[in-house]
Design a protein around this nucleic acid. Structure first.
Length: 904
RNA sequence: GCCGGGAUGGCGAAAUUGGCAGACGCAGCGGACUUAAAAUCCGCAGGGGCGAAAGCUCUGUGGGGGUUCGAUUCCCCCUCCCGGCACCA
């Protein structure tokens, strides 16, 4: 504990004796008279530490309570960098509030936490500090776990998952074998991002503006490497289709996934190179150029074929033409530069004519074959037909190189009699009619696309097809700190999977980590050299490790059965808990993690391990934590440390503030002064309960009488309104900022009530109150009936107030709960219910407008009809004045809301 | 360029279905308590004008238009900020 707190504590202890003796009936360990978060939180922290099963879900196999409904609430697991940041605190505060709310509503709640603990930072740290990645990682986990516990998050640590341990990653390997068995894992050559300074592969997300994230002046190269892929594209259609069912997901995320999958229906059409011009032999790539188009209806307007510079046919054509080779290399360089600069969209279009022609199979026309820098090899077939009249890019290109522009679609006119007019070019809309298109002239575009695709297929030069932007998932990483891919290479038997019984393939330790010379594992003969399980001969191990997104694709299933040594998890248990009821995390994972997870779930379903089609029922993406107008980052120096906040204001204040400052789905602006206000509020609650809690009284639980005095009735109404507001938000829109505001309003109302009751009593009292500052002590006794009503009401209010606060500020809530003399565990105490009748206002104030301008207000009973309101309004002096001498045209009454009198 | 989200007091924000704009909190100001300060409690507070004051009045939700008795909210156009995607054929 910091020195400051010790002195503060000492000061409190020293003054304690001087305080009045109203709490003489409290036991010796009585609470401090002032809210001291450190005292409260360390006390409960200690108790919770000693109860490891506090937050454990009911066991499923055997004796889960069949009446309780399950609720699986999950926050995205962190990478163990070693220190929590405010974004984590916000994320976990949302999930924790929800978990606690669900517990209090009687659910069987699963609320686990784990560590996404493989990945490159551990290797960097190993190089920088000469610490083994495992040691560094496990040390970080210990630190962050301690931080999480101190923050009071209610996790069931008995099912903690640490992805870098063999007990977990062996199941990554097991799944990989299953993928391989089903032909969904395969090996092929592929382009990867390569940083020459790091001498290693980078993930796409580690390439920033075409440069290495750690060497910002070093351009990333593309290298061809043999890589393992998972065939996610097999599920592309299902992944797309089922997005439609995920109505518990933000539309933004669904849209992002839809775009990422990028399904595009179109037609493949084969253009044969012109045989009548055999000036060169055809190369290995053959003589047919297959193009992909979504607008086969415009094919009669195709006036050239455009190839990506990397297209295999281009290499053949250029082989015998050094001049062409030079120009094409130039195009490749331009394209690469644009990609690296991240503005491939703005590349200036360049192309070069190959000197060859191809034949449009629809009309037998010869069209020139060009190579262009705006054609991408990794989309479609890397070749297009160019239709300048009906495509903006083709139009721009044709204008530049003076290629023919031929109109083949006219806009469809609404009136069939009307002559169709020539559109401004390029005309790219799909509501048109074909012209100059042989037998297809006169068809609508949509109909033409179908008929022309069918025509191509019947005649063997094309077919309707679907293309995706989504690519198969390359999971090989030439790094050390990851799951070894369980495959072997035998000279005799080729690629051989490691037999299941030999799993896990253990990641060796005591490995020298360097950035040079390829994967560290490849330099370990003891790891690499093994025997082939088929022939017993010598074999080499795969030395690549898996992408860490593999780890996070299924970890939430492992939570349900974290210690299973025979299977990744027990199906029955997973079926009980899945799908996840609520998943909470940052929107930055909208694509990768969340699409991989969906893919993995569908694969596990096809394996028969689970029954659900989707892993996550409701997804919530919280906003970023911002300070001084920018995302918190070391380089900007605007980091707020959770540890420091906990030390200064307490975990409750840090958590409550992270929920109070903005709605959770929006970015929140961290202001140090804001958290002080929250601490003040918690102190106000503390003092109120401290003043009013009288745990030894026997009339504590008495029913609140129906005929309360008006001021007490107002408090009761406010209480029930507050319970309604907070409960509704948990059920619906999750605007915890306004929930907390509502609780603050309730507390403010209690202070006013206390004040007014006291002043009433003082007014009634025979003599002025004696000095002393503490209102209650100075108060003369009220009549017995009123006192009883007041006590019963206060008991209800205080209990409910503490319960309402429990999801947001658990430490203080537990402390106050104990102060109230409650014995039951607050975590399992019933969430307060509101009574709609008690929450209802008896009298309401109706604003009266004249011609839309507010002129007065009238007070009526809540169930008053329009006549009453109008009568009351017309009798109002201000209204009378405003309408004098004018004529009432109409009266608009919105029940319970407003009256507007329209005048002339 | 396309697709989202956003713009409201000095600041973070609220207004849930078209109905009193600014709840709640911060900062600020005034008062009480105190020898004093801190802490605490009470009160004031969008801006302009008039008024000693109570109050009255005009104005105000990025800008411009529209629909409506009534618009922060719905429609059209524009500006700026944030996020994602981007010659995807």
């Amino acid at each position: 504990m910091p020195q400051q707190d010790k002195t503060q504590e000492a000061a409190i202890a020293a003054t304690a004796g001087q305080q009045n003796d109203r709490f003489a009936d409290r036991p010796a360990d009585r609470p401090a008279d002032r809210y001291n978060p450190q005292l409260v939180e360390t006390k409960w922290f200690g108790r919770w530490q000693n109860d490891p099963h506090l937050y454990a879900a009911d066991q499923v196999s055997g004796h889960a309570d069949p009446i309780k409904k399950k609720y699986y609430v999950l926050e995205m697991l962190p990478y163990p960098s070693g220190v929590l940041h405010m974004g984590h605190v916000r994320n976990y505060s949302i999930g924790d509030a929800l978990a606690r709310y669900m517990w209090m509503n009687g659910y069987n709640v699963l609320h686990p936490m784990g560590w996404d603990s493989f990945g490159l930072p551990a290797e960097n740290a190993a190089i920088a500090n000469n610490t083994p990645p495992r040691q560094w990682t496990l040390g970080n986990i210990a630190k962050m776990k301690a931080q999480m516990k101190r923050l009071g998050f209610a996790y069931d640590w008995s099912c903690e998952v640490t992805t870098c341990l063999p007990e977990y990653y062996r199941w990554n390997q097991w799944f990989f074998l299953k993928f391989y068995e089903k032909s969904l894992a395969y090996r092929k050559k592929s382009k990867v991002n390569w940083c020459p300074k790091c001498a290693t592969v980078l993930a796409n997300e580690q390439v920033v503006n075409g440069c290495c994230w750690r060497h910002e002046d070093t351009l990333v190269e593309q290298r061809e490497l043999e890589q393992w892929f998972l065939r996610i594209t097999k599920y592309a259609d299902e992944l797309l289709r089922d997005l439609g069912q995920l109505d518990g997901w933000p539309e933004k995320v669904r849209t992002m996934q839809r775009n990422w999958i990028g399904r595009s229906e179109g037609t493949l059409v084969d253009f044969k190179l012109d045989y009548s011009q055999p000036t060169q032999p055809f190369g290995a790539a053959g003589a047919t150029i297959s193009v992909f188009t979504t607008r086969v209806d415009t094919i009669f307007g195709a006036t050239s074929v455009q190839l990506a510079p990397q297209h295999p046919i281009v290499a053949d054509l250029a082989a015998a033409n050094p001049d062409l080779r030079v120009k094409i290399d130039q195009l490749i360089a331009e394209q690469r530069q644009a990609k690296e600069a991240g503005d491939i969209g703005e590349i200036e279009k360049h192309g070069v004519f190959t000197g060859r022609y191809a034949i449009n199979p629809f009309n037998g026309e010869k069209v020139p074959v060009w190579v262009a820098n705006y054609i991408l090899m990794d989309y479609g077939t890397g070749a297009i037909m160019s239709v300048p009249a009906h495509d903006e890019r083709d139009y721009e290109f044709a204008k530049k190189y003076k290629l023919e522009i031929r109109l083949v679609i006219l806009p469809r006119s609404g009136d069939p009699e009307e002559t169709m007019c020539e559109p401004a070019l390029p005309f790219t809309a799909e509501d048109g009619t074909l012209i100059n298109s042989g037998q297809f002239s006169g068809l609508d575009c949509a109909e033409a696309i179908k008929k022309m695709s069918a025509h191509a297929e019947q005649n063997g030069f094309g077919k309707a097809t679907v293309t995706y932007r989504l690519k198969d998932w390359g999971i090989s990483r030439q790094r050390y700190w990851g799951t070894p891919i369980p495959m072997l290479y035998c000279e005799k038997d080729g690629i051989v999977p490691v037999p299941e019984k030999d799993l896990p393939v253990i990641l060796p330790e005591n490995v020298e980590i360097t950035l040079a010379g390829g994967s560290p594992l490849s330099k370990l003969p003891a790891f690499v050299n093994t025997t082939c399980p088929k022939c017993g001969g010598p074999a080499r191990r795969e030395t690549d490790t898996m992408d860490t997104f593999v780890d996070s694709s299924w970890y939430f299933y492992r939570y349900t059965d974290a210690h299973n040594g025979r299977a990744p998890f027990e199906s029955k248990t997973a079926q009980y808990w899945f799908p996840i009821d609520q998943y909470i995390g940052g929107v930055e994972h909208a694509i990768l993690h969340l699409i991989y997870s969906r893919f993995w779930t569908k694969f596990m379903r096809d394996l028969g391990l689970i029954a659900n089609n989707e892993p996550v029922e409701h997804l919530f993406t919280q906003g970023m934590v911002i300070k001084d107008g920018a995302k918190m980052s070391k380089s900007l120096g605007n980091i707020v440390s959770p540890d420091e906040m906990v030390a200064r204001y307490g975990a409750d204040a840090a958590r409550l503030y992270s929920l109070f400052a903005a709605p959770p789905d929006r970015d929140m602006d961290w202001q140090d002064s804001g958290i002080e206000g929250i601490q003040r509020f918690l102190g106000r609650v503390y003092r109120f309960v401290l003043r009013n809690a009288k745990p030894n009284r026997t009339d504590w639980g008495n029913m609140v009488p129906a005929d309360l005095p008006p001021q007490a009735r107002a408090i009761q109404r406010k209480l029930h309104q507050t319970i309604k507001r907070v409960s509704d938000d948990f059920q619906g829109r999750w605007h915890f900022n306004t929930c907390i505001s509502a609780i603050m309003e309730l507390v403010n109302a209690l202070y006013s009530y206390e004040e007014s009751v006291v002043s009433d009593r003082v007014a009634r009292a025979p003599s002025p109150a004696s000095a002393g500052g503490e209102v209650a002590a100075a108060t003369p006794q009220p009549p017995a009936a009123e006192e009883a009503a007041s006590i019963a009401l206060r008991a209800e209010v205080q209990r409910s107030l503490v319960l309402l606060l429990a999801p947001f500020a658990p430490y203080l809530a537990h402390e106050l709960w104990e102060m109230l003399g409650e014995k039951e565990n607050l975590l399992k105490a019933a969430w307060p219910r509101y009574d709609a009748a008690l929450a209802k206002e008896e009298e309401i104030e109706i604003p009266v407008q004249i011609n839309g301008k507010l002129r007065s207000r009238v007070v009526v009973s809540a169930d008053a009809g329009e006549d009453v309101v109008v009568d009351r309004a017309l009798a109002d002096e201000k209204v009378k004045f405003a309408i004098a001498g004018k004529q009432i045209i109409k009266k608009i009454y919105v029940p319970g809301k407003l009256l507007n009198i329209v005048m002339k």
